[in-house]
């Protein structure tokens, strides 16, 4: 077995750990055995399917366009996730996909355009996935927070509108609050990295036998990509929200709630 390789036997042996968890559940009467086994089986099938699909897409013989087509699919799906999390906001899918597009162009443009990482299928899809995943969370967070903060400041917002402010001016304090709320966790994570936890990319690389310093360099790139993407994406979302939350004559539309029950 080469460095970092896990064979079928390795996976089978690691199932001993699951068996231990099942045994503990049975011993303590937790009645979680069935759901444990089901979730393990499901995870294995899902991961194998994704692995097979990725093998097809990031095959070095396949055109890089296939990888980018995968990225476009991810953008559309992530846009739909954001829309579903705040279904009462009109035309949110378009805004979310637009924000992901801007974010991808900037962050992947830097990473691949400046040659930070090689422009290959095996880098494009995972990096774009990581970036879009984090940007999606930031989008949902900033959207919900803007709506809530506008509602909390309803009197202030109306007073500003009555003074002749535009929707954007009246919403500005709420946009600032929402952006801070969405970005502070990212900043905290970046600050604590290495001290509290070893992030996923680095852990994976070290397990696969890569020298720790090389792993750290890759992790640094990934971290900066994620932070930059979250900040860019949340900002584009915040800038695009006021026209969806106010009428054309700058009257606020008070959304009763942001998610459907």
């Amino acid at each position: 077995m080469g460095r970092g390789d896990v064979g079928a036997l390795g996976v089978a042996l690691s199932l001993l750990l699951v068996a231990a968890a099942v045994a503990l559940s049975r011993w303590q009467g937790l009645r979680l055995e069935a759901s444990m086994l089901w979730s393990v089986l499901r995870a294995m099938v899902q991961l194998l399917l994704v692995g097979a699909a990725l093998t097809l897409v990031i095959d070095p013989d396949r055109p890089i366009l296939a990888s980018w087509a995968w990225v476009v699919g991810m953008l559309a799906y992530a846009g739909d996730v954001v829309r579903r999390r705040a279904p009462r906001i009109p035309r949110l899918w378009r805004l979310a996909v637009g924000a992901f597009g801007v974010t991808s162009a900037i962050s992947l443009g830097v990473v691949f355009g400046l040659g930070v990482l090689p422009h290959e299928g095996r880098t494009v899809v995972p990096l774009a996935g990581l970036m879009i995943g984090n940007a999606m969370n930031a989008s949902v967070l900033v959207t919900r927070r803007v709506v809530e903060d506008l509602r909390d400041r309803r009197a202030e917002v109306e007073a500003r509108i009555a003074l002749g402010h535009t929707a954007r001016e009246a919403a500005h304090p709420s946009l600032v609050t929402a952006l801070r709320t969405a970005l502070i966790p990212q900043i905290e994570t970046t600050r604590a990295v290495g001290l509290v936890f070893l992030p996923g990319a680095m852990t994976g690389l070290i397990l696969a036998g890569v020298h720790p310093v090389d792993a750290v360099l890759v992790q640094a790139v990934v971290m900066f990509l994620v932070l930059g993407a979250a900040a860019t994406n949340a900002t584009v979302m915040a800038l695009g929200l006021p026209p969806r939350l106010f009428t054309a004559d700058h009257r606020p539309i008070w959304l009763v709630r942001t998610t459907e029950h």
Binding site: A155, E158, A159, A162, L163, G164, H165, T166, D249, H250
Partner: peptide
């Protein structure tokens, strides 16, 4: 123009709004 109108027709609300 709604913004010009709102500056021309000023409003004071029931509850004082303090920024």
């Amino acid at each position: 123009d709604p913004r010009r109108l709102r500056r021309e027709v000023g409003m004071v609300f029931q509850r004082p709004v303090v920024f």
